[in-house]
């Protein structure tokens, strides 16, 4: 079964605003806004019987606040929130986080799927900038020459002790280029006006650029490093007309363990996935994150972020 997790518009949902330390890369925004959106849906709109005999009610069945369509489960039940003003008022940026160990052809399908979700959410037919984040790449400004591929630099989330596996190794350029072809197609179809990548240093850019037909216009660098971006990269980017933008996302935005914990039956879970044999109603199986997409719509001439949110898609493989 396919699980589609969504945050809805997180801009007015306070808890997701990142607190200190602000320069740390973090997936807190995603995880806390997912939780907040689940909680909001659990308590509304259909009143579930509360406080029976003075005791706190158990968590409502996930079926009351999720929707299954065919083989897809929307967590929570989702209604798009289209943008309020005419399309040309907005600057829409989408960032797609790929997961490791996914064949390039699947990833191409996923890309299309992610863009479609966002377009439908915002009620539009095009986006201005699509940035893709390949797994395992981590830019390090202190290491000028090489692109530093360091799995250790990803903060392993506490619940995620067992994740230091092959997940975090960077892919070779060829795999990336195969994926890039899909993006170029989206660009040709005018669904996306500009393309971007994240965390590319000079060396990787030099290998990557010659193989692209549509060049990336943007390379996103972690904000922590914005004052120490190596000169050569600045010069090279300028020369290639690539804009260096800042972000504060971590690359492995939704590790498997985190996802399992959020959906699980434990103290911090929302009770979609079964925790043991007793959870007869809940879903069983192995949950595997597929991709995460973040979208941001900014009213251009006012600098106001009107809509921002995430979709995360996972596969649930039922145990045979």
């Amino acid at each position: 079964m396919k699980l589609i997790l969504s945050t809805s518009n997180i801009m007015s949902g306070g808890p997701s605003v990142i607190r200190r330390p602000i320069f740390e890369k973090s997936n807190t925004e995603l995880t806390s806004s997912l939780r907040a959106n689940f909680t909001a849906h659990q308590s509304s709109p259909t009143p579930t019987p509360t406080a029976v005999n003075g005791t706190a009610s158990p968590k409502p069945s996930f079926k009351t606040w999720t929707t299954q369509e065919g083989n897809t489960l929307w967590i929570p039940t989702h209604t798009p929130s289209p943008l309020a003003e005419p399309r040309e008022s907005y600057d829409i940026t989408v960032k797609l986080f790929y997961r490791p160990n996914i064949p390039a052809d699947r990833r191409c399908v996923q890309t299309r799927e992610a863009i479609d979700l966002v377009l439908k959410e915002l009620g539009t037919s095009s986006i201005d900038l699509l940035i893709v984040s390949f797994p395992g790449i981590s830019f390090d400004a202190d290491d000028e020459d090489s692109d530093f591929d360091d799995p250790q630099s990803e903060p392993a989330s506490e619940q995620d002790g067992a994740v230091q596996d092959a997940e975090d190794l960077p892919e070779d350029i060829d795999t990336m280029i195969t994926t890039w072809r899909t993006l170029e197609k989206l660009h040709d179809q005018k669904v996306v006006s500009k393309l971007g990548i994240a965390e590319f240093g000079c060396a990787r850019l030099e290998k990557f650029l010659p193989q692209t037909r549509v060049k990336p216009s943007v390379d996103q660098i972690n904000v922590r490093d914005c004052c120490v971006v190596p000169k050569p990269l600045i010069l090279y980017a300028k020369q290639q007309k690539i804009e260096l933008l800042t972000h504060n996302d971590c690359t492995n935005v939704l590790p498997r363990g985190t996802l399992r914990e959020i959906l699980g039956s434990g103290e911090h879970g929302v009770g979609v996935l079964a925790g043991g044999a007793l959870d007869a109603e809940r879903l069983k199986g192995d949950v595997e994150p597929q991709w995460v997409v973040k979208y941001t719509a900014v009213v251009k001439d006012r600098g106001v972020v009107e809509s921002k949110g995430y979709f995360a898609v996972a596969e649930l493989r039922e145990e045979s």
Binding site: M11, V17, I18, I22, D91, T93, L129, V218, I221, V223, D225, C226, C227, V229, I234, E243, L244, L245, T246, H247, N248, T296, V298, G303, V305, K308
Partner: peptide, 12 residues
């Protein structure tokens, strides 16, 4: 900072 993180701001 949170607001800026939601915007496309160039490094300089």
């Amino acid at each position: 900072e949170s607001y800026l993180n939601s915007m496309n701001v160039d490094v300089e």
